[in-house]
């Protein structure tokens, strides 16, 4: 039984990683209607940026910040330079998905061309997990969970509690209408991409931190888990993404106790289950097709 408690604790860490990633992913979708499959590549670029900053003595917090900012700027640029033009040109969402794929391919492979397929690692001192009730966390994991919680609260506070947030939500809800009502929708979109990009970068650096090493292909599988979490929670719903991340993250770790090799499959099983019961995701609304 002890092991299940422990697994739950580990699941919280995984969930924290997933939540940061999934909220960023879902935010991009909510505001721009873009399923950004290049998200994973941005994550990896942020990992490398943080790596470079660490080698220049930035320290852990500095590296997290650099990773976040890299993700932020990169996401913003991708949206401004590529996605937005395609969205304007034609409303076809499928085309946009293919566009994000193309961007993902180019970015990931350019990076691989530059850094090679060697392994990299943040040179930080090793830490042993301390016991916290039945759970066990390392300091880094505590930081990751802490950063995730702060980021989530901050995003919620921004969206719910500020004028900027309501303008962003209005843009997400109905861009045309918001525009008619005087909301500068383009600016809102830019801000949303900056914020979601920051979360993306944070998720990347946190991931690199927990797995101990990374290559340009790190995060391929992780992106899919992020998407699964976002879909389970209800795409376009930040709170849903957090919930989805918790459910997927924790259940993946718990399932690893009796059946390690099925760990990955759990996320999928959950996804199917949720889709059958609540096609719009746990918190999703109006995602159901009409007719």
């Amino acid at each position: 039984m002890q092991i299940y408690y422990q697994a739950f604790g580990f699941g919280i860490v995984t969930a924290a990683l997933l939540a940061v990633g999934a909220v960023g992913f879902t935010l991009q979708f909510a505001v721009s209607n873009v399923f950004n499959l290049a998200y994973g590549s941005v994550m990896v670029v942020a990992m490398y940026a943080a790596y470079v900053s660490l080698n220049h003595g930035a320290g852990l917090w500095g590296a997290l910040a650099v990773g976040g900012i890299t993700g932020s700027v990169l996401s913003y640029l991708i949206n401004r330079l590529v996605y937005r033009h395609f969205v304007r040109k034609q409303a076809n969402r499928f085309t946009i998905v293919l566009v994000t794929l193309a961007v993902a391919l180019m970015m990931a492979n350019l990076l691989e061309g530059i850094v090679g397929d060697n392994f990299f690692s943040y040179q930080l001192p090793t830490q042993i997990a301390y016991a916290f009730g039945p759970f066990r966390f390392t300091n880094y994991e505590t930081i990751i969970v802490g950063v995730a919680v702060v980021a989530m609260v901050a995003v919620q506070a921004l969206l719910r509690g500020t004028k900027l947030g309501s303008a962003m939500r209005a843009t997400a809800e109905n861009s045309d209408l918001a525009g008619n009502c005087g909301v500068p929708t383009d600016r809102m979109e830019d801000i949303a991409w900056l914020i979601s990009g920051f979360l993306c970068g944070l998720a990347g650096v946190s991931l690199a931190l927990t797995i101990g090493q990374f290559t340009p292909t790190t995060g391929n599988v992780f992106l899919v888990t992020i998407i699964a979490a976002a879909v389970v929670g209800g795409v376009g719903r930040p709170v849903g993404a957090i919930l989805g991340a918790l459910i997927v993250g924790v259940s993946e770790e718990i399932v690893a106790v009796p059946a390690s090799e099925y760990q990955v499959v759990v996320g999928f099983a959950l996804l199917i289950l949720v889709l059958l019961l609540r096609p719009q995701g746990i918190l999703g609304t109006a995602q159901v097709r009409s007719g």
């Binding site: 697994a7 797995i211 992780f222 770790e253 718990i254 390690s260 090799e261 099925y262």
Partner: peptide, 19 residues
């Protein structure tokens, strides 16, 4: 144990191994 590849965490498996 068989580890599914590419996961962000194998903490549970690690704890089991140590146990």
């Amino acid at each position: 144990l068989v580890l599914p590849s590419g996961q962000p965490s194998y903490s549970t498996q690690a704890a089991q191994v140590l146990a």
